[in-house]
Design a protein around this nucleic acid. Structure first.
Length: 297
DNA sequence: TCCATTTGACCCAC
DNA sequence: GTGGGTCAAATGGA
């Protein structure tokens, strides 16, 4: 997997160089690979790279941390990179902390934070490795016992926000405003996206990784990510990805758990679909599932 | 006066 | 020990 990841990254780099050459000398565009094709191939390389990286999360974090040290973000990071031995193990875990969610939650990527509901801000935190702070909101009608909350984080310089909704509104004022996508997943949906990939650890915390992939493909779309327990009595998660404007929906069904699984942590996904109009850049290679090392699980 | 926002402190999972 | 999430006093605007 590491070898494949390096190959994808190198392929992406080479295509980027080709694209740079084309941009500097547009005359070469005719008769050869077009800039659009190159851009698509670059995108595909990095998308595949992300897919492979997510499949070997047990190995990559330390390596990525090492790369970060080489890159060096300047002040304050020096000591974090100079650690050795036992101390380094602790530092490698920094920034990876994610609290387990015990309630229903879903992620929406939107150019606006407005959703028609009344929210009250109750906190703001600077998140490690994030340039923008994360804002915490709860439903204004908490006196009605409404537990709905949301977290808003600006994810790019462009007005694009990652909004994490936690729990549904129970207050009467917002019942009518509940997003239409908060429904039971329907695996047999005719309007599905179509691509296939391997996911070593698809879990709530990693939905943001999926989100980032979609972001790269189409920044103009409002995309919802919703994850929930597939049933009350299981620890398996289902993830639904829906494009706001096209209505395309994708359901990632969990595999059947086997003894020894960390059920809270591990879910594999197989995507299937038919509509490519919104996420045409995600036509991944169909043989990637063969790369999953089930023995690791 | 009421309500929303800000922000430092605190709690707790990791 | 650290980072993410929440609390609550202080502050400001209507």
């Amino acid at each position: 997997m590491e070898k494949r990841l390096m190959e994808e990254l190198l392929a992406g780099k080479n295509r980027a160089i080709q694209l740079q050459t084309l941009l500097h000398n547009p005359a070469k565009d005719e008769g050869s690979v077009s800039r659009e094709e190159l851009a698509m191939k670059i995108l595909r390389s990095f998308t595949n790279g992300i897919s492979i990286a997510s499949s070997c999360t047990a190995v990559l974090p330390a390596q990525i941390a090492a790369v970060d040290c080489v890159g060096g973000s300047g002040s304050g990071s020096g000591s974090a990179c100079s650690g050795e031995g036992k101390k380094k193990v602790v530092k490698d875990k920094r920034g990876c902390y994610k609290r387990k969610r015990t309630s229903d939650a879903w992620i929406k990527v939107s150019p606006t934070v407005e959703d028609g509901c009344a929210w009250r801000k109750y906190g703001q935190k600077h998140i490690l490795n994030s340039y923008h702070p994360r804002c915490y909101y709860r439903c204004t009608h908490k006196y009605q016992g409404c537990k709905a909350k949301k977290q808003v984080q600006k994810i790019k310089e462009d007005p694009m926000y990652q909004i994490t909704y936690i729990d549904h509104h129970t207050c009467t004022d917002t019942q009518m405003m509940l997003p239409q996508h908060i429904v039971e997943p329907d695996p047999i949906e005719s309007n599905l996206l179509s691509f296939q990939r391997s996911i070593h650890s698809l879990k709530p915390a990693n939905v943001s990784l999926l989100k980032q992939e979609f972001e790269v493909v189409d920044m103009t779309q409002s995309v919802d990510f919703h994850y929930a327990k597939s049933s009350v009595n299981t620890s398996s998660w289902q993830v639904i990805i829906r494009s706001g404007s096209s209505g395309c929906k994708q359901v990632l069904s969990p595999r059947i758990p086997v003894p020894g699984d960390d059920l809270e942590e591990e879910v594999s996904g197989l995507y299937s679909c038919a509509s490519m109009n919104s996420f045409h850049g995600l036509d991944m290679e169909v043989d990637q599932l063969g790369d999953i090392d089930f023995e690791q699980w």
